[in-house]
Simulated scan of single mutants.
Amino acid sequence: MKAAIVQAFDEPLVVGVDGSEPSLRAVDWAADEAALRGVPLRVVYASLWERYEGAALAQGLGKPSERVRAEDITEGAARRAQARHPDLKVSADVLPEEPEYALVREGRHAGALVLGTRGRSGITELLLGSVSLTVAAHAPCPVIVLRGSHDNQVTPAVRGRVVVGVGGHPEPSAAVRFAFEEARRRGVPLEVIRAWRCPAHETTDPPPPDFVRGCPQSAGDPARLHEEQAAETLETALRDAPEDVAVRRRTVEGHARKVLLDASHEADLLVVGARRREGHLGLQLGRVAHTALHHSACPVAVVPEPM
């Protein structure tokens, strides 16, 4: 199961384009990432234009007008990537199908998928878009969605770190392995974060004076116990950590969603896991991944994890 989900690192990188400025920024970022990995870059445009094009247009132009536009977009994006990295092997393809389905299928033979967002500022930046959300939820490979001020580049590092969140499953995860590889390629430290919380006690009585931030600080200091458990989970998740990547361990009290969003302001890439439930057809994103995709201050890599 795990081998079917975690993709090989020598497979091509795929970037989805639609001619918008965000997708062109994604091409720049994907070209850098592909060059860093030493793998080919595949530029894909997917649209069901045949459903909306009339026969007269198709006969008059020799091709449907949307097909002509799609080819212009992909060819332009491929030239852009090639100009950025002349030695990079770049291919482009136009697929007459729904973008969500086409990109998820492309992910079966990709090291990762790279997608842009709708906008850069204001309320537009908060709208992830149904394509990016659906692909991140269902693709069999890591999906990197470019959020925040990513400066159109992978290297040189702007903030100088990759951040990954460790969840409640203590075993080494696909997300942690992916994060190590990304940090190694960039030559930056990996910050590994385990968020923890002390459950509030169910009582109708007012909290005692020593009740701090939801956790009593007496009677054996349960808060410290929860923090120690978080540290143990962190160490277990890192038991196979490679020695050639500098690791910064952090246990932070608070909701994982908020803790990782705060960390994204100081990261070049935020890595989160998403557990895939076999046979489940619904949206397969947890609250942490869903929040990161909508609000992260840096690009987010959603890495599928087996249940």
Rank of each mutant, 00 (worst) to 15 (best):
K89N: 10
E181P: 02
V272S: 08
P306A: 10
V303S: 07
L283C: 05
S130N: 02
C298K: 03
R257W: 07
V176H: 03
R67D: 06
P299N: 05
A34E: 00
A112M: 12
A92R: 11
A55V: 13
A157Q: 04
E98T: 09
P299D: 08
P86C: 15
E66V: 04
G38K: 04
P99A: 09
S130F: 02
E191N: 10
N152M: 06
A237C: 06
K258W: 03
G220D: 12
P304T: 13
H294L: 12
H226S: 06
E191H: 13
C198A: 14
F211H: 11
C298D: 07
D72N: 08
L238I: 10
V14N: 05
L225E: 15
G129Q: 07
R161F: 12
T74N: 07
P96M: 02
T74G: 05
R108Y: 07
G119H: 09
H150D: 06
I5E: 00
A157K: 05
D28R: 15
G167E: 09
V39S: 01
V271Q: 04
E50V: 05
C198S: 12
R147P: 03
E181H: 08
R239H: 14
H280G: 00
P99Y: 12
A200E: 13
V131P: 02
G254P: 07
R118N: 12
G286P: 11
R118V: 10
L103Q: 02
P207F: 01
S264A: 06
P208D: 14
V302D: 11
E253W: 08
R51Y: 00
D10H: 05
G38H: 06
K63W: 11
Y52P: 00
L238M: 03
G129N: 08
R147S: 04
R250D: 08
A297D: 14
G129W: 03
P96E: 05
H255T: 11
L281M: 09
A139M: 01
S121L: 04
V43Y: 04
V44I: 15
V272L: 12
E202Q: 14
L41T: 05
P208K: 11
V192E: 11
P64I: 04
P304K: 15
A297P: 00
A46Y: 01
A137S: 07
P199G: 04
T134Y: 07
R159S: 05
P40N: 10
H109N: 07
P86T: 15
A4K: 06
N152R: 14
G16K: 02
E253V: 08
L127I: 15
L234S: 07
G122C: 01
V14C: 08
L269F: 10
P208M: 15
G76T: 09
P208G: 15
L225C: 00
